[in-house]
Nucleic acid binder design. Structure first.
Lengths: 344, 344
DNA sequence: CTGTTAGCGCTTTCAT
DNA sequence: ATGAAAGCGCTAACAG
């Protein structure tokens, strides 16, 4: 039998409203009464009913997160860190995290409706903004608080945290150029993702800056962020008449697949062929050869997203609502100095 | 302005109860009325308020999951699959998943109280049962529905799904023996975990069965499931006067660290020294040499846990409440046939 | 078949 | 400083 505010009131011969006020630190309650009530509550093992409170206050102290697992297969370790960082920050702030894993893009909309219209959460965190993102349109239309990981076309409308993908790829491509690679391919993210474009821009700009023309045949992308897709994409590049001698691959998981394709051809990774990945997942340091990768400060991203959202939910002003964090190039052996024909 | 049942009633000139019943498919409602109500609800964009409904029905349609990230550092990919499988099954069944990431064991209790006593969830999924597990005691005492991933001392009290760790380790150790390794070490899980004991038993039994005595100096464990801990543990084993020539390591993440320690000594993995890991995380297939590992059917575990819990919550009987699933040995190169002194 | 009524547990005016 | 009362949105007896 759960103990309610009413039980406490009865126990103490007080009214429920007094008890409620005491518990919530209202000023117009005698200090001793407050003390007494709080103690009794603890003694009786009282916990406010989340449903009742939320019905009354229209606040749930919960934030929502929906992962649509096709969009990036949930196996990507990237997501674990994101989740851990968001979860930890939530917990520090006394918030809960309502997570929905949606196995199909067609169910995504209704997952959002469940959370938002069903008033299960106070705010949402969006990840992986897309071009013409229906989720953003929906949330903006509803006037529902949210923050996103990633910019979009509707920049002014909402707060976001993003990682500077152009800068990241720039560093990666420049590094490949510096290592002597001259024909650098690009394996991009699914084009529907807004960040896919930023990264491509970084590629394009850096090639031009480095005096290497952009050969469109060297540009490809994956439709999902899996190793298999990376493998296929790299296969495609290697089968060209004039294949690349290096590639920037926009996710480490994809890059692992790409490395497989390269090695399968008997090319020596980091000599005949250079690869730079993106994300710097733990596995990057473990594979053979270790994968050079563009590290996202994902823990900080998650923490800041969460903090910003809670501020928005509580009606506090945001110091900065559009945050762009810098990635870091982590150099390992997959991008060693080019030694043409080393393996032959 | 959110649309409520009352608005629909007003719109249609019906009573709220009729609308409610129509929406919830009560039998005593005229088919046409039901139809009309449902249509209007959709047209007006109605979504039942989760709080109101849950206050009334005492059901939240939400299940709870708390990760205490020291117990197994959340970076372990194992957790992603578990989460994905639980999340997906939840979503299929129309349930939400309330996740709490608790950064400190001391906060664990209050995380449970928030969810359970605050009636935020209908049931809980526990992972990583421990000896004298306070969480189990608490939930049993409260009479709160839960299922656990892993057995415990209080077996009869609650439903669980577990993986047969003894069998898994048995297969792994036997495989090492078959490959010609004769001095097989053991790097165990934190001893507080119930499954740590099962796995050790598997080790012990198999050694005896194989006629190899158990040398206690070859048995060690990690206090947390990180690569670093695995590295340290293996260091310890290799520094012995008579070091092992192989080891069974109870988690792949730990095993990766262990491999590092082995290779650092100039030993050839899979020739001088054999390693078998546990979990079969994706990285296992990617490292050099690929890691032989005992695969847990983690996706099935998650799905079944979720299904069982929902049954319990809905008061349906469980066909089987104690499920033990079999692991599978996935043989790769880290446990190649022993070739003493190959590297020298 | 439909409507009336009561109340889930809590917060919040407004009186006292 | 405390209490009475209303009501958040919904469901579930019970009448009609």
């Amino acid at each position: 039998m759960p103990v309610t505010i009413k039980n406490i009131a009865a126990e103490l011969g007080l009214s429920v409203s007094t008890v409620s006020k005491a518990l919530n630190d209202y000023p117009d309650i005698a200090p001793q009464t407050r003390q007494l009530v709080k103690e009794t509550a603890r003694r009786m093992g009282y916990r406010a009913s989340a449903a009742a409170r939320s019905l009354r206050t229209r606040r749930t102290n919960t934030i929502g997160l929906i992962f649509c697992i096709i969009d990036r297969h949930l196996t990507d370790p990237y997501y674990l860190d994101l989740l851990a960082s968001i979860g930890e920050e939530c917990s520090r702030q006394g918030f809960d995290l309502l997570l929905s894993v949606c196995p199909d893009r067609r169910l995504e909309r209704s997952a959002y409706e469940r959370m938002v219209d069903g008033k299960r959460v106070d705010g949402m965190i969006l990840t992986g903004t897309r071009h013409g993102d229906g989720r953003i349109a929906y949330l903006v239309e509803r006037g529902f608080p949210f923050v996103s990981l990633g910019r979009s076309e509707r920049d002014g409308d909402f707060p976001y945290v993003d990682v500077d993908g152009a800068k990241g790829i720039n560093d990666g491509v420049q590094h490949l150029i510096d290592q002597g690679y001259g024909r650098i391919g690009f394996v991009g993210l699914p084009p529907e993702l807004v960040c896919a474009g930023h990264r491509f821009q970084g590629y394009q700009t850096t090639l031009e800056k480095g005096g290497l023309g952009l050969d469109p045949r060297l540009v490809t992308h994956c439709d999902c962020l899996t190793q298999e897709a990376g493998y296929q994409a790299m296969q495609g590049l290697l089968e060209l008449d004039e294949p690349p001698d290096a590639a920037c691959v926009c996710s480490d998981v994809m890059a692992l697949g790409a490395m497989g394709a390269v090695q399968e051809r008997g090319l020596a990774m980091g000599r005949d062929f250079g690869i730079v990945g993106f994300d710097d997942i733990p596995m990057a340091a473990q594979v053979q050869p270790p994968l050079t990768s563009i590290r996202q400060p994902i823990y900080e991203v998650g923490t800041r997203l969460c903090r910003m959202l809670i501020k928005v939910v509580e009606g506090e002003p945001l110091a900065e609502s559009h945050v762009i964090l810098g990635p870091t190039l982590v150099i390992r052996e997959s991008s060693g100095p080019y030694q043409r024909g080393w393996a032959r």
